[in-house]
C-alpha cells in the first residue's frame, strides 16, 4: 500500500517559512514543505526571497568590526581584578 502524501497548502507552507529557513522543522515537515515548493512557483519565490534576505543580513551583521584592542582591554581588566 502506498503511503498517503499529505500536501501542505500555501498557507500552511508559509506558516513554516521561518522555521524551515532556520532548520527547526522535523524531517517530516521539511519533506512536506519541499513537496509543496516543488509544485508551487509563488511559494518558491517567497521562500527564495526570504532566504536571500536572511543570508545577506547575517553575512553583513556577522562581520561587524570588533575593536582591535578589545582583547587587550579584557586581559588588562582581568589582570587588575587579581591585584
Amino acid at each position: 500500500m502506498l503511503p498517503i502524501i499529505n500536501l501542505y497548502t500555501c498557507k500552511e507552507t508559509i506558516a513554516r517559512l521561518d522555521d524551515y529557513l532556520d532548520r527547526e522543522l522535523s524531517p517530516e515537515e521539511v519533506r512536506r514543505v519541499e513537496r509543496h515548493l516543488k509544485i508551487c512557483h509563488q511559494c518558491t519565490r517567497k521562500f527564495g526571497f526570504e532566504k536571500e534576505l536572511l543570508a545577506q543580513m547575517r553575512e553583513r551583521l556577522g562581520r561587524l568590526e570588533t575593536p582591535p584592542d578589545l582583547w587587550d582591554r579584557v586581559t588588562q581588566a582581568l589582570a587588575e581584578t587579581e591585584e
Binding site: L17, E50, E52, L53, Q56
Partner: peptide
C-alpha cells in the same frame, strides 16, 4: 512577508535582478 509584498506591489520582482539584493 511584508517586504516581499511591498517589492511585488512596486514591481521589483518583474526584472531579472534579485529583489532581496535590490533592497539591501
Amino acid at each position: 512577508l511584508f517586504l516581499y509584498t511591498q517589492v511585488t506591489l512596486n514591481g521589483w520582482t518583474k526584472g531579472n535582478e534579485d529583489p532581496a539584493k535590490q533592497i539591501l
